[in-house]
Each structure stands twice: as structure tokens, then as C-alpha cells.
């Protein structure tokens, strides 16, 4: 285990090919059922709906016939924080140590029974990846039977977010120990629900520290620059804030890559 994320520890990450995403929402559905995400009877107000994985709709703003649309799935970015030292925007501000950075996995955890609902982490997250339980979860009759036993449901008044299906990592790690492989987990052994559910194969998940894993091959993370992608078609959301996310996006379309960050007039052209 290292404190800088550059060593032998895992650094799980995700690559989403935005040119493949059709915006079907399968990832959102899979995530909700996998992680017992509560829902409301009336979901019209999206700003208090809990969506660990949320698909944003982006447009290039041009009139027909040049209109182009991109669907952008957004899980928790599991930021490494400035310098990739694990001081994620949310982890560093949580007053009760209810969210923590796993130096062995690079995953940002959320301890529901520790969180007392101050929502400071939500204010700190520029991606709106954190959600507050405004209500107690209310499952339709019989639905309790279908809840995943591996993920604890959350109570009213606490914050929750995508965990990169951490329970799947735990299961894979347990299996590896049982089979005397120590913590040597194969790429296919630990995959998130959204990755497996995507019908277009737009989502890839794996260990960014392992050059053999598909995620590393796709984005070629530069360890000297806190994992910045070397693939020119790849980018991370709000790279300039130095949050150092572990979710990468790929697109051939220039306007999509530009939409991934903020640029003042003329800056984008210069940065190309």
C-alpha cells in the first residue's frame, strides 16, 4: 500500500467511449438495482433524485443540420485530488471522516453509518456526484426481496454516491485469497455493474496501474502527471481543477472534448 497511488497498489478506473454511448440509460438502471439506490414515487424533480450513475445530454449548440448530441455517463470520479495524493475535494472536507480515500484501490468510500448529513462533501464536488437522502427509502411492496444483500441500504439524512461497486471488489478479493492468489485479482473478476450492463460496450473498467489492463491501453495514463491521459482523444472532466479523476472519457469529436472543461476565449485553440 502506498500513499501516493503511484506504486503497486490498485488504481481502479473507468474509461467511457462517448462515441459509443447511445444514452440508453442501461448503466443507470443497472447501477440502481445493483446498489439498492432508493427512488421517489414522483421523479419529476431531478435535482433531488439519487442517480449514482447519471447520463448528461450535451449538445454542440449548433442549428440543424449541424446539431450533434453526446450522452455523457457520469459516475463518481473517485478523484485522487491535487497531486493525486488522495485528498479528493470531498474526502478532505468531510468533518467526521465519513468518506475516505482507499490508497490500496484508489476508490473513494462513503461510510453511511458515520455520515451525519452536513452535505459539505456535496458542496465540494464539482461533478454533482454526491446525493443526499432527503427521504427514507420506500420500496414498493415485495421489492425488499429483490434488494442486493451485498449493499446496505441507506437511511434518511446521509450522503451516498457511486462506490465503483466496491462489494464486487471485496468479493473478488475474497475469492483471490481463497484461491491463494493473495490479492492478485484478474481484470475480468472485478467489473462494475454499469460496465457489464452497457449494451454498446462504451464503458471499460480496470486497474490504471496495470499496463495490461484495457483501461490503461485506452488512455495511457501519464503517472508523472497524476494520470493525465496521453491519448489525445481522451480527457477527464474538469482536468484544470486538478481533482485528478479516475474516470476518463474518449471521443473523436473535438467539441465533446472541449465540453469536458472550461476554457476562456481562445484558450482551447491554444491548448490543442
Amino acid at each position: 500500500m502506498t500513499q501516493d497511488n503511484h506504486g503497486k497498489a490498485y488504481k481502479f478506473g473507468m474509461v467511457i467511449d462517448l462515441d459509443k454511448c447511445t444514452g440508453c440509460g442501461s448503466c443507470m438502471v443497472a447501477c440502481m438495482s445493483e446498489n439498492n439506490v432508493p427512488f421517489k414515487e414522483d421523479e419529476t424533480n431531478k435535482k433531488d433524485s439519487i442517480t449514482w450513475m447519471k447520463v448528461f445530454k450535451l449538445t454542440n449548440g449548433k442549428p440543424f443540420p449541424d446539431t450533434d448530441i453526446c450522452y455523457m455517463p457520469r459516475p463518481c470520479m473517485h478523484c485522487g485530488g491535487k497531486g493525486d495524493h488522495g485528498h479528493s475535494p470531498c474526502v478532505s472536507v468531510c468533518p467526521a471522516t465519513a468518506t475516505d480515500y482507499g490508497y490500496d484501490t484508489g476508490i473513494v468510500s462513503q461510510i453511511y453509518t458515520r455520515c451525519f448529513g452536513c452535505r459539505y462533501c456535496m458542496g465540494a464536488c464539482p461533478y454533482h456526484a454526491r446525493y443526499f437522502n432527503w427521504w427514507d427509502p420506500k420500496w414498493p411492496d415485495g421489492m425488499e426481496e429483490y434488494l442486493s444483500p451485498s449493499v446496505s441500504p441507506r437511511m434518511r439524512g446521509v450522503v451516498e454516491k457511486c462506490s465503483f461497486c466496491y462489494h464486487r471488489y471485496q468479493a473478488a478479493r475474497d475469492r483471490a485469497y481463497h484461491e491463494e492468489r493473495r490479492d492478485n485479482i484478474e481484470e475480468g473478476e472485478y467489473q462494475t455493474a454499469c460496465t457489464q450492463a452497457c449494451p454498446a460496450g462504451a464503458i471499460t473498467f480496470g486497474d490504471l496501474n496495470n499496463p495490461e489492463h484495457e483501461v490503461s491501453k485506452l488512455v495511457k495514463p501519464d503517472t508523472h502527471q497524476c494520470g493525465k491521459p496521453r491519448n489525445p482523444k481522451a480527457f477527464r472532466l474538469l482536468e484544470r481543477l486538478q481533482t485528478n479523476p479516475k474516470v476518463y472519457y474518449i471521443s473523436e469529436r473535438e467539441w465533446v472534448r472541449k465540453a469536458g472543461d472550461n476554457y476562456r476565449d481562445g484558450e482551447w485553440e491554444k491548448s490543442k
Binding site: 468533518p95 467526521a96 471522516t97 465519513a98 455520515c115 448529513g117
Partner: peptide, 16 residues
């Protein structure tokens, strides 16, 4: 303001 007022003391006990 806090979502779980009964856990308010966590801010002292589990202080970050």
C-alpha cells in the same frame, strides 16, 4: 441543518 441530528457528536468524536 444536519441530516442526522442524533449523530451530531460524530464531528467531535470522529473528527477529521
Amino acid at each position: 441543518d444536519i441530516g442526522q441530528p442524533l449523530r451530531g457528536w460524530f464531528i467531535f468524536w470522529h473528527a477529521n
